[in-house]
Simulated assay, not measured.
Amino acid sequence: MTGLLTFGETMGVVAADTIGRLEHARGFTFGIGGAESNVALGVARLGGDAVWIGRIGPDAAGDLIEHRLRAGGVRAVTIRDTSFTGLMVKHRRTGSVLHVDYHRAGSAGSRLAPADIPVETVREASILHVTGITPALSDTARAAVFQAVETAQAAHVPVSIDINYRSKLWSRYDASPVLMDLITRADVVFAGPDEAALVVDGPPLKGLAALGPSEVVIKDGARGCEALIGGEHYALPALSVTVVDPVGAGDAFVAGYLTERLAGAGADSRLRTAIAAGAFAVTVPGDCEGMPSREDLGLLVAASDNVAR
């Protein structure tokens, strides 16, 4: 294969469609979400080649994950497990506060193991992308991440990691040494300012770059992004958009950057596409539903009329 290879847990997503306490919600939507599959979908929708590997349960949520990923252009390698597909439950406690609960302990996705990630598939990839979520799921999932990264390193396949710290999955104390180890093996690292503070003190760009990655990108939401790429410093502002759902914006950003990297684009083009993809994603509800196509990105260009005719 050529293109992006990633793996991890994708869940069913139950989202209340009203603002307030979950107990008062009367309507819900059901979709899918997972950091790694979000990135794979984002890359595919932008015209790149993406493979996602993961375990799913023998249930309707597993069926939906398989269907959505393949329909979205991702080459999904789904391993049917006897355990259930994990669930994420989202509701807006207020108009500006999003609350997320996970139901994933013992799930099919958490049972990912090193044998699930074929060595040859890793060796043939153009880039391997992992996150800090998968190592938090289980010992076997953590082993799968490290084995894949070590295989990629040996085969000179670039390794990308998004720190993606989730406090509901593990403590900062437990996460820090694992993330530090992964970052020292990576070529590209993505992090928010608070996530960078898990592993480095002081300025995040220089601190993370000192660990070894040649490309460090700090995602800072409405403040845009900063990057240190090949020793050059970049800073881009965010685009002004109306935020409907912030979940998935970081994954869209990563997808935009990695798609352009796979296409051989320069650092400035990678970051501009990343910023645009992240901005587009927050304008659409859902974890991955807002992943844009190249044509969609053109809709962000300022115009006097917001009606596409």
Rank of each mutant, 00 (worst) to 15 (best):
E226N: 06
L262G: 06
K90Q: 11
D17V: 00
A277P: 09
G212Y: 08
D63C: 10
L182K: 10
A277C: 08
R123H: 13
R75C: 07
V74L: 04
S107M: 06
E124D: 13
V74Y: 08
T131V: 12
A50Y: 11
T283A: 04
S138G: 02
V130R: 07
G256R: 04
V247T: 15
A265L: 07
S269N: 15
G278Q: 12
L271Y: 13
A16V: 02
G27P: 00
S269P: 05
E36T: 12
R68H: 04
V241N: 10
Y165S: 03
A25P: 05
Y102P: 06
V282W: 11
L112V: 10
H91R: 01
R70E: 04
S176Q: 13
T242H: 06
Q153R: 15
A252R: 12
R45D: 11
R92S: 13
K90H: 09
V51R: 15
G221D: 14
K90R: 09
H91Q: 08
G286I: 09
R223V: 03
V145C: 14
A35C: 03
L46G: 15
G42E: 01
T6A: 05
F280Y: 15
D162M: 15
V51Q: 12
S37L: 04
H103V: 05
A152M: 00
V178D: 10
V254M: 06
L297E: 15
I161Q: 02
I183N: 11
V13L: 09
D268P: 01
L179P: 04
G132N: 12
A263T: 07
M11Q: 00
Y234I: 08
P237L: 12
